[in-house]
């Protein structure tokens, strides 16, 4: 659905997006990861038609992305705000109208969301009278009111309290189930694993890896297995390589073993089983958090 092809963006002489290519499939959730200042927001702004690339192309349904696609895009920037003196309803109607929705249709949508989020009684309040959490809800509604097919969320969970963060998470899943393509950037890796189908890590303006979340994780699998025993007396035979420091306590010991190419997991399991104290056996696939930290700190 969205193809980013060899994008370059410069600020003065500094290259903030350096030859970035991505492909976001329809109806999926794409996570854009990277440390602060990596160039995520710059890329997101180009996808949201706020700025243009200096070089390269962005395709939206195989067409070069342009302002005509604005009605199909919903964008919630990291730095967000609303008109403090406007009422909730006026604000939502204004944003919807800017996205090209007819006022009468926009009114219907506003009503629907007000009911769904149980905020009907706040409709005629000015934004400055609302709590921060309430304003956050309104902000999110204003982003999706026009039913975008491509939703861009820059750090959607930052600044949200846990209750609202969960609400946003549920709404994101809902929208995905309805066929919306979603791109979001975040620092919170738990959300990434929970929500994303695909990810890309950007560091110092360059894409350092991308792919489907499970295949990315598997690509970092080093044939390691975690074993947990209900005894502290278990010793691992020397032909198995211990990968991690051993954790032992009274009546418990944990090991991570890296198998060689000639060794099979069954072999390790057989040994463990015979100790009669095995309580846990699982392959160790690094989490996105571990991959992220590892990739960013080594490059």
């Amino acid at each position: 659905m969205i193809q980013v092809q060899q994008i370059y963006k410069y600020f003065d002489d500094k290259c903030v997006n350096d030859n970035i290519s991505l492909e976001i499939k329809q109806g999926t959730i794409y996570g854009l990861l990277g440390p602060n200042g990596a160039g995520k927001t710059t890329l997101i702004r180009m996808l949201a038609t706020v700025t243009k690339a200096d070089k390269g192309k962005i395709l939206f349904h195989n067409e070069p992305l342009s302002t005509k696609h604005i009605p199909f895009i919903g964008y919630m920037p990291e730095e967000r705000g609303l008109y403090r003196k406007m009422t909730v309803v006026d604000q939502l109607l204004y944003f919807a109208e800017l996205k090209g929705i007819k006022r009468s249709d926009a009114k219907q949508e506003v009503k629907h969301w007000m009911n769904k989020l149980d905020i009907v009684e706040w409709a005629d309040k000015k934004m400055e009278e609302l709590s921060k959490g309430m304003a956050q809800k309104i902000q999110f509604v204003s982003t999706i009111l026009h039913k975008p097919t491509f939703l861009i969320l820059d750090e959607p969970f930052s600044g949200f309290d846990p209750v609202n963060a969960d609400l946003v998470k549920d709404l994101i899943i809902d929208m995905k189930n309805q066929g919306t393509t979603i791109l979001f950037s975040t620092h919170r890796m738990d959300n990434v694993e929970e929500l994303c189908d695909q990810i890309a890590i950007i560091h110092q303006g360059k894409k350092i890896l991308d792919g489907e979340i499970q295949s990315v994780r598997r690509s970092f699998f080093k044939n390691e297995y975690d074993l947990t025993f209900s005894s502290s007396d278990v010793s691992i035979p020397s032909h198995f390589n211990l990968a991690n420091p051993v954790k032992t306590s009274i009546n418990r010991s944990e090991y991570r073993v890296q198998l060689t190419e000639s060794q099979s997991p069954q072999e390790l399991l057989d040994f463990a089983y015979n100790t009669k104290s095995l309580i846990g056996f699982q392959e160790f696939v690094p989490s996105i958090h571990q991959i992220f930290v590892n990739q960013v700190s080594t490059k």
């Binding site: 967000r80 008109y83 944003f95």
Partner: peptide, 10 residues
Amino acid sequence: NRIVEVIVSS
């Protein structure tokens, strides 16, 4: 108020 980025995306 950081509204502008939302507006210029529309």
